[in-house]
Design a protein around this nucleic acid. Structure first.
Lengths: 234, 234
DNA sequence: TCTCATACATGATAAATTTCATATTATTAC
DNA sequence: GTAATAATATGAAATTTATCATGTATGAGA
């Protein structure tokens, strides 16, 4: 799939939808609105690449992205997902480092680009914004620590159950208890940190145990408590 | 070992030694100096515990601490170490969450406690300090992402080699190429995310291959390039 | 609707790693 | 200094997980 994007001059992105921007003064909002650019991207588009310098961050207005690092033999390690009103890319902009991850859309998405100058301006001039952003990065750091411990100590089976729970909590279920985010087995493997075949086998196992029901990439949670138990006790 | 600490009224901790505080105005320095408390702690003392609320952060003036999470069956997962002029505990203070890790001294240490009120005051009133702290947490986030990918994708052997390199880079070598930080095999296992026996076996293997020399907990790096090769290619 | 590429599935190994058992050796506390 | 405790070491077996091989199903694009 080719990378594509096109400006959307009509529906302007509403910054106030992100809790991060709630403390801005009207003047600051005015300033940022002039500096930001909203664009839409087709599914499968790369927003930025690991190792590149990035010049701003993106506020997700619609769609879902995967944020991943490329490890051994090009194997992706998915670090997290971004969904509407999440902000991505700010880590590299603020630390002044090259992007440590790649961001790719999993669905058609609309992002609002905020140039680094605007971001630095707000950080320096609005203590509340700065604190909010600091809190965001601290929460992400806590999640990363949790992730490290899980990968290091839990079995693949436990981690897979945990990821299903995590996906439910972050993206929700439709009316029929089906996970609203749909990932390939390979992508699931790239979150869990295992081989694709292992995910396939374990999902079949969960299915045999009536914990989930599988229909292609649609995963229906039949027994949430059992899943929690698998994730925590085995 | 019992937890102990005692105030040190004489040698006042010099904040300017930490790059984090370099942007403070003389008035801010004056204010913080009145609010902070310096204490010394014996080796093996817990500074804060995972799950507790903490009321301030600590600037390490001397000594080394391990920062870890407690996972399955009480097995520790070491997330990182803190050495002089590192700041610890700020993540939980700023995010307003409970401590997500436990901090324990590995040597007799001196810490400078900075109450959360002082920290918040600086974040809100000094944009440069705030940016500096934001950059710190963003850098830590980048390191955490790296760690996640390594644990998920590399073998235990590769990760152990990598940790030895990491310890060399962070704590240095003495005149005889011996790592200046001395850890038990169990602690090494708790960084790598493996069983203690595996670390013992792999260290013996590195020794047989003349990559390191072992003398109790002293690890001498004989062939750094070989170590880098093991960490990256196997 | 056909076709090609990709994703999914499953069995059979192979490899890596853990666990358990048991000595031996250091450290620490008294 | 000595006893008690914790850490290190190593073998054998068990377990988990990855890899390889192969076949089927599915879906996107012509």
């Amino acid at each position: 799939m080719k990378q594509q994007h096109f400006n959307q001059p009509i529906e302007e992105c509403d910054l106030s939808l992100s809790s991060l921007f709630k403390h801005l003064t009207p003047e600051e909002v005015e300033k940022i609105i002039l500096e930001k650019t909203q664009s839409s991207y087709k599914k499968g588009t790369y927003i930025y690449h690991e190792g590149n310098r990035i010049t701003g961050c993106y506020l997700v207005m619609s769609g879902i992205l995967k944020i991943f690092k490329t490890g051994i033999d090009g194997k992706e390690q998915i670090i997290r997902f971004a969904k509407p009103f999440d902000i991505i890319g700010f880590r590299s902009v603020l630390s002044g480092e090259l992007a440590c991850t790649t961001a790719k859309t999993l669905e058609d998405s609309t992002l609002c680009y905020i140039p680094q100058e605007s971001l630095f301006y707000l950080v320096k001039n609005n203590g509340n914004f700065s604190l909010e952003l600091l809190q965001l990065s601290c929460r992400e750091l806590g999640e990363a620590n949790e992730y490290i411990t899980d990968i290091a100590q839990k079995t693949v089976r436990e981690r897979l159950a945990e990821i299903l729970i995590h996906l439910k909590e972050n993206f929700g279920l439709d009316g029929d208890n089906v996970l609203q985010i749909s990932l390939t087995r390979e992508e699931l493997a790239n979150i869990v940190g295992t081989a694709t075949e292992s995910v396939i086998r374990l999902l079949s196992e969960f299915k045999s145990d009536n914990v989930i029901e599988i229909n292609g990439r649609k995963i229906k949670l039949l027994n949430y408590k059992a899943l929690v138990k698998i994730a925590n006790f085995n």
